[in-house]
Write a protein that binds this DNA or RNA. Sequence first.
DNA 1: CCCAAGATTGGATCGTCAATCCAAAACGCT
DNA 2: AGCGTTTTGGATTGACGATCCAATCTTGGG
Lengths: 267, 267
Amino acid sequence: MAKRTAKRAPRRTDGLSREVIVQAAIDLLDEGGVSALTLRALTIRLSTGYGAVYHHVTDKNDLLAAAADDVIARVLSGAVVGADPPEALRGVALGLFDAIDAHPWVGAELSRQPWRPALLDFYESVGRLLHALAVPERARFDAAGALVNYVLGVAAQNAAQNAARTGRRPARDPDQGPDRDTDRDTDRDPDQGPDRDTDRDTDRGPDQETGRADFLAGVAEQWSELDPGRYPFVHEAATRLREHDDRDQFLAGVDIFLAGIATLRRP
Amino acid sequence: MAKRTAKRAPRRTDGLSREVIVQAAIDLLDEGGVSALTLRALTIRLSTGYGAVYHHVTDKNDLLAAAADDVIARVLSGAVVGADPPEALRGVALGLFDAIDAHPWVGAELSRQPWRPALLDFYESVGRLLHALAVPERARFDAAGALVNYVLGVAAQNAAQNAARTGRRPARDPDQGPDRDTDRDTDRDPDQGPDRDTDRDTDRGPDQETGRADFLAGVAEQWSELDPGRYPFVHEAATRLREHDDRDQFLAGVDIFLAGIATLRRP
DNA sequence: CCCAAGATTGGATCGTCAATCCAAAACGCT
DNA sequence: AGCGTTTTGGATTGACGATCCAATCTTGGG
């Protein structure tokens, strides 16, 4: 076989740096979700090779973490100030929520590593505001943890679903239509050929906005078909689900939280 | 190469069924986390081939979802009855928390698909208990959603961390030996210097129980080294962190929630 | 200006994985 | 027994993360 020295492309002149790589990774992630961040895609986008990338980055995990830190750092810089504590808490929580909503992949990443330095400022803000709310020290720790967990949990879940809906995959998960093998056990139906295409690469919905509505409508449809005797609450909730808004419901949850926290005050 | 008809192993006689496969998958998942569920491992454990598995299961996602459904179905069957509503809510939440704690991989899976039928009973229980608490219909929907999100969020995060600590991987992460050249730094990061090794995968403790404590101690160590002027709350929280217990803090969060929900009552 | 040591880069290569494919083996029915 | 159908085993494909090494640039000492 021909000498493996087969005339390689000339070396780039513009410096490749960790920042450049991380930014390219963020772009890929924003465009196509976690599954779009592959070493191959990165090397193509940067028109470089594997070695160059790995020279600046230890790992794919390193890259993902760096990208998440980067996004969060930018977001948290725009802090909410001057409002009364409850309002400020809402603002901080919403800030993180919106950030993760805008970059769904960040949610999954942060959920996996909630003690990353990038979140320190978030903890700190929450803790201070709780202090301002006269929550005693011991309870403050629990309350802050719970609130952070709530925000990250909700955001991560919305992210996972948004990602799934738009054809991006949080990790795996091929979109999957509204219904599906609820019938498993016994003996899977003899063919299931017809869906089978839901599988692979997903048809990404015609539109992201209407896609979300369609998805919710599908779930609501299923829920409303449940036996009202056996599932009275879920059956009823189906109607709410149709008019449901992620952000509103998130805020409602935060408010419940704040109301609960208010009971912890020690004057 | 010998004719590809190279004498294949005799066909098994005990029937291979979807149940058997799912159960084997659960075993693998419980033993080694998500990363341990590979088609290879599955075929080896079942001493069968790829074709056989894919004949009963459409996808790896399908398999994972089925496994999660299975575990949850078993857990939720042991419902809490007879207690007063708040106590029952605590019981339901704890039940799900403990289940996910025992099977960390379920947390990640459910977080990604919170509307799976397996969770219907959970929603239903929560909704009914909220009804018993005299929460008006509209608020009930928000409250139930928030509570479910909280439980799933916390459980998923604990799961992710437990998984990371014990060497199981929540999603990616190539196992990789304990140490490694994290020093690939070159320049970058004048800030956030002290951590940087929190980065990757932390030293996994020798033992699962003490491992958790070590991990928390490590984070507490970092936090306590922060500038108390810049991060008063986090710095102070470090001491709490050392004596922190996941389950207790989870319950504290649930209680805050319940206190907040109590303010929604309409008599 | 020149050249060697080191830093940086490109891409071939390896091992693993999910998924597909097809023929062999067992089964079921007459 | 004979034949179509279901079930099974395993080779194969293609994508990925990671590693490796030679080619290429940069730097600084002379």
